[in-house]
Every structure is written in C-alpha cells, then in structure tokens.
C-alpha cells in the first residue's frame, strides 16, 4: 500500500486529471451549470443542469483513467454520447451555427482549468503544466465527440427527410381500371429514379394495371442517365406483363434526346398524358368518342 502511494505521485498527468475530476466532481458540475451551454439546454431547473454536468464529469474521469484522453472512441464517452448529441442538437435548433456551438463547448474548459491549477498550486510548475495540458486535450476530445455526434445526427435527419421527400414526390394515380400513372415533377437523379421505378412497379401489381404511364412533363431535363432509367423501368414493367408509356416529352427534351444520341428505341412515347391515356384505353378496348358539338347544324 505504501509503495502504491509512492507510485501515485508518479501517476501520469492523465490519471492525475482523472483523480482531480472525481475529487472536484461537484464543483465542476456546479460551475458548468452556469455556462450558456448547460443553462440554455436544461431550462427546467438548475439541478437538472448540475445532474447533466455530473454525468459528463464522470465520463471524462473514466476516459482519463483509461489514459485515452486523445481518443474520441474511448469507452468512457459511450454513455454520454446521446446526451451530448441532445445538447448539440438543442443549440443548433436554437439557431446557433456549428462554430458557435463549438465555442460554447470550448467555454467549458476555463472553469475546470482554474480549479485544477488552484488544486495543484503546491505541485512543481512543470507537473502543473503537464496536467493542465492533459485536461485541455481531454476537453478538446469532448468537443470533438459532441460535434461528431451532432453532425451524424444531422446527417441521419437529412437522409430521413430526403427519403420522405422522394416518396412524397412520387404519387401513383389510378386513371382507369388497369391504368396507373406517375406524374414526375422536378429533377430525376439516380436515387429518385430508383424510387420511381419501385413505386410504379408495385402499383402495377397492386392495381392489376396492364398499363403504366410515366409522365415527364414536369421534368426539366433528361440526360442519358435519366433516359437509361426510363428504359429500365419500361423493360421491368414489360417483364411483369405491363406496358409502360412515357408521356409529356417536351420539344426541348425531345431535342436533347436526339442531340445526345439516346435511343429510346423500345419505349412507347406520347406527346401528352391525355394522348397516353387515349392510347391505353384504346388498347384496353375502350374507345372515347367525342359527343357531337352542341348547336352544330348539319346542312
């Protein structure tokens, strides 16, 4: 035990910081509770902020004990990742930029550092500097972990929204018994084309549709990739026993298609959605006949 004590004085700066954090857990948590980052996120009560502070101090102490102050993947951070993400997200929602959140996190260092320096006043200056450096590295890592977590949360949110948008932007309309249509609006990229293809083919099955119309009136440009996707959709529909008609090819797009030398070869096209519907109805054996114009006089 005696020997162990002697060893402790030689402990690495990281461990020293760990010991300090455990010893001063309460004071650190109290000081942090007054910092903007905690004050603004935990608005219910000051106790709530102090509680949150304690949890983070514990995590930091654990990381320091493990001598992994530079490692954002240190096991000690695992338990607080979610809380850090919530704090970061709350500040972002409040309209702070990433840089501002980052500087709020940086502001957590000085109060702890002052405590540490005061605690180690008796120590040799060299030792004190080492410990202060270790603490500042540890706090830097905490900042990194928070930013990382917040950014990945944001990315997940963006991904979710993008997917929702894709689905919302691809309505399938039943035009007639056995005829479905997808009016496409906006730019078609690879991901969206994929969703369109799946949505349309599923509708073909669900609605027992013999005909599927892809209306591209609202698509600003068609490049070779989009044309390729259109052809794939047509080919897949055909394998399933349905016929796919592409309508709404505007003159500008028709020009591009010719200009790019794209071969829409096997794809059945019609100028407008109405023409496409007319074609499908005719194929189904239903014929549309215009009623005689009113007031027309035969001579």
């Amino acid at each position: 035990m005696q020997e162990h004590e002697a060893d402790a004085t030689q402990a690495s700066p990281a461990r020293e910081v760990g010991d300090f954090l455990r010893r001063r857990r309460e004071q650190v948590a109290q000081r942090w509770a007054d910092e903007p980052l905690f004050r603004t996120v935990f608005t219910v009560s000051r106790d709530e902020a102090v509680d949150a502070g304690r949890v983070i101090v514990d995590a930091l102490a654990q990381v320091a004990d493990a001598q992994r102050i530079e490692d954002p993947d240190a096991a000690g951070f695992t338990g607080v990742r979610e809380q850090l993400a919530r704090m970061g997200a709350a500040r972002s929602r409040a309209g702070l930029s990433t840089t501002q959140v980052s500087s709020e996190l940086a502001a957590l260092l000085p109060p702890v550092e002052n405590l540490l320096v005061a605690d180690l006043a008796q120590e040799d200056p060299e030792r004190r500097r080492e410990c202060a450096t270790a603490l500042s590295v540890l706090m830097g890592t905490l900042r990194l972990v928070t930013m990382q977590t917040a950014l990945s949360e944001n990315q997940a949110l963006i991904d979710r929204q993008r997917l929702q948008l894709l689905e919302v932007a691809t309505p399938v309309i039943k035009l007639w018994d056995g005829i479905v249509a997808v009016p496409l609006i906006g730019t078609l990229d690879s991901a969206r084309s994929q969703v369109v293809m799946e949505t349309l083919l599923n509708a073909v099955v669900d609605q027992h549709a013999r005909f599927a119309i892809l209306d591209i009136t609202g698509v600003p440009t068609v490049d070779s990739l989009v044309a390729q996707h259109l052809m794939k959709t047509v080919a897949a529909a055909r394998l399933m026993g349905a016929e796919c008609v592409v309508s709404g090819i505007r003159p500008a797009i028709a020009q591009t298609i010719v200009h790019l030398g794209l071969d829409l070869g096997t794809v059945k096209t019609r100028a407008s959605l109405a023409d496409a519907l007319g074609y499908c109805l005719h194929e189904l054996g239903a014929n549309i006949v215009n009623a005689p114009a009113e007031g027309a006089v035969r001579r």
């Binding site: 799946e198 083919l201 073909v204 099955v205 027992h208 794939k232 080919a235 394998l239 399933m240 026993g241």
Partner: peptide, 25 residues
Amino acid sequence: GMRPAVAITLVELGLTFPELRTALN
C-alpha cells in the same frame, strides 16, 4: 406474375428478354 423486385434485378443484370411474352397473372 413476375415480381417487381425480380423484374428490376433482371433488367439491372442486363436481361430484358424482349422476345418473351409476359402477363400480370
């Protein structure tokens, strides 16, 4: 009765079987 996922995969694989007669069911 070819399923959509099967049709998409075949097309992606490069097999469109233009000569094949198909039906929904």
